[in-house]
């Protein structure tokens, strides 16, 4: 039993799909200027529910890798909720996205968002800002 478990774990560690991103800055990050219409990748069911009751806001849709566990993503929500301009935060585990709603007068710094996500141990691969 132990040798089989060892073999399974060894295979997962060695051949697991984990080749691309160390916990460092991701350089092929795709950032977008503020738009009024979300891209197809962003317009998920969870996003639609998130923005349903929002107005006069900016929503940062942050694509994150390594966000596989609810318990590990808790720090992301806590971190962004400390910002007085943040109205609400949601984590979409299925699509690997963090949704952050800011008040409309917030000057969003995409680099700062990336650093805050990195400080929680995940990597940002793209950010889209949508005006609501």
């Amino acid at each position: 039993m132990q040798s089989k478990l060892t073999l399974v774990i060894f295979i997962l560690f060695v051949f697991g799909k984990s080749a691309s991103a160390e916990t460092e800055h991701v350089h092929n990050q795709h950032n977008h200027d503020t738009t009024a219409t979300p891209s197809v990748a962003v317009a998920t069911e969870r996003y639609e529910g998130f923005v349903k009751d929002l107005k006069d806001s900016k929503v940062a849709v942050v694509n994150v890798i390594g966000m596989v566990c609810d318990f590990c993503a808790r720090g992301i929500e806590k971190t962004f909720n400390k910002d007085e301009f943040v109205r609400k935060v949601d984590v979409d585990l299925a699509n690997g996205q963090v949704l952050i709603a800011y008040s409309a007068d917030k000057l969003i710094n995409q680099e700062e968002i990336s650093e805050l996500i990195l400080a929680n141990g995940q990597n940002v691969t793209g950010i889209e800002i949508i005006k609501i």
């Binding site: 799909k17 984990s18 991103a21 390594g66 596989v68 590990c72 995940q122 990597n123």
Partner: peptide
């Protein structure tokens, strides 16, 4: 730590 779209090690 290695992060990917669907995994973390």
């Amino acid at each position: 730590r290695k992060n990917t779209q669907h995994s973390q090690r």
